[in-house]
């Protein structure tokens, strides 16, 4: 059974944004994550940060090099081009 990601934090402020209720925040990418990504971060259902999150996989690169975030949260859930959002229609 997968474990919640070690890089997950819950914050009300960060990345220039503020929320009334603390939200999932990725300390690798330094930003709030999308709700669908939060399910990966929390290892809900059969989702696993070490298997499904590009930010995690990039950060813990297979060659042992660690990078500073790299792949975006947006990329990890297949958002539309030009930064416009995709969805789970």
């Amino acid at each position: 059974m997968a474990e919640r990601c070690q890089h997950l934090d819950y914050r009300r402020e960060g990345d220039g944004k503020a929320f009334e209720v603390a939200r999932a925040y990725c300390t690798v990418a330094d930003r709030f994550v999308q709700p669908v990504t939060a399910d990966i971060c929390n290892a809900r259902y059969d989702l696993d940060p070490t298997e499904h999150c590009e930010i995690y996989l990039d950060h813990h690169g297979v060659d042992g090099e660690e990078s500073a975030g790299g792949t975006s949260d947006s990329d990890s859930v297949g958002d539309g081009e030009d930064g416009r959002k995709g969805s789970d229609p």
């Binding site: 990345d15 944004k17 939200r23 994550v33 999308q34 969805s87 789970d88």
Partner: peptide, 14 residues
Amino acid sequence: AALTGGIHGKEANP
């Protein structure tokens, strides 16, 4: 009208 969705949230558009 698709109001909310299940992928992005207020982090994308408040």
